[in-house]
Write a protein that binds this DNA or RNA. Structure first.
Length: 314
DNA sequence: AAGAAGACCAACCGCGAGCAG
DNA sequence: GCTGCTCGCGGTTGGTCTTCT
């Protein structure tokens, strides 16, 4: 089929930001017609606008429509968007029909600038809504020349921003798995262990104990108030089953970055025994000044999302 | 204080679907 | 069934604002 040339390609048709006069002309024209547009293609001429019909439609639907809600998205809206996106994917217009006064463009922008990043920080793939493999959480985008420590520190510091112990446990588990089996092994070996020694990755129970002694650990939900129910929880059981043996030898250290590039205060704070665990303990007990992971960090929705995400095969 | 970098978001572009003739 | 037209959608761009160095 031969595509008809879009009016936007006409010479002399104005593009770019709309002026108040143009907005007024468009609104008045549509109001004169009782809110009915008819043909968008013919509208610019009828309204006295030197604009493409497509541009007019976009301006009206995304900005000038009287039922558009402006301002920040509420937590409820955010939750709804995530839930709908998990169900529908990038069907922004369909998602928009479930949120009063929000446009597909606004939702799309909000997703790309806020929610997507938030999910990535939490280790959730924004496309599949499944949990990312550890290497993607920690190593994605890290550069050999110093990017790795930053990625690890960021991930570790993020743990301090999560109040849910379950999320902390999962994130720490991922962190330790990645360090034990991934490229970060060399880094950690260089900084926390005598040369040539293996890295000790604690059992899941040890990790729970570590978290239990974490200064900012605060019983905040059912999982914390009932150790039994916490241990029985499916996700915990799966994590226990997948946790590496306590003294499993690590891969031979591979130095990716100079030892000096890791914060000295962290290395210095680690006692001789159990250096790796204590190193992380110190990272956790002295949370860095980080922006809150999200405004919903106490919200069960986020916890549920991580719980329901699939564990990567080990 | 000034420039750089990053974040945000309105607007644009190209494609496909649907419809009328 | 084919063709041409229009609309709507989703991805992307680029200008503006904010934050950082």
């Amino acid at each position: 089929m031969v595509r008809s040339p879009c009016c936007c390609h006409d010479a002399g048709v104005k593009k770019g930001p709309w002026t108040e006069e143009e907005d007024r002309a468009l609104v008045e024209h549509i109001q004169r017609h009782g809110g009915h547009v008819g043909s968008w293609r013919n509208l610019p001429k009828a309204a006295g606008l030197n604009r493409c019909g497509k541009s007019c439609r976009l301006r009206w639907t995304n900005y000038l429509r009287p039922d558009i809600k402006r301002g920040n998205f509420t937590d409820d809206e955010e939750r709804l968007i995530i839930a709908l996106h998990a169900e529908l994917g990038n069907k922004w217009s369909t998602i928009a029909t479930h949120l009063d006064g929000r446009t597909d463009n606004e939702i799309k922008n909000y997703w790309n600038t806020h929610i997507r990043k938030k999910l990535l920080r939490m280790g959730v793939d924004p496309v599949t809504h499944q949990r990312l493999p550890p290497e993607d959480i920690l190593l994605n985008g890290a550069t050999p020349a110093g990017g790795l420590p930053e990625a690890i520190l960021s991930a570790a510091a993020s743990l301090g921003g999560l109040n849910s112990v379950l999320v902390q446990a999962q994130a720490l588990q991922l962190l330790l798995q990645a360090i034990n089996g991934g490229a970060a092994a060399g880094l950690m070996a260089n900084n926390f262990s005598p040369a040539g020694s293996s890295i000790v990755v604690p059992s899941f129970q040890d990790q729970m104990n570590l978290l239990a002694h974490h200064a900012s650990y605060r019983p905040a939900d059912d999982y914390l108030n009932s150790t039994a129910s916490f241990a029985e929880h499916d996700v915990v059981q799966r994590l226990n089953a997948s946790a590496p043996a306590p003294a499993a030898p690590a891969a031979p250290p591979v130095a990716l970055v100079p030892a000096a590039s890791f914060p000295q205060e962290v290395a210095a704070a680690a006692p001789a025994d159990d250096r790796t665990v204590q190193g992380f303990s110190n990272l956790l007990s002295e949370p860095m000044e980080m922006p809150s992971m999200c405004s919903l960090e106490d919200d069960p929705f986020w916890k549920d999302m991580l719980e329901s995400s699939r564990l990567p095969p080990l």
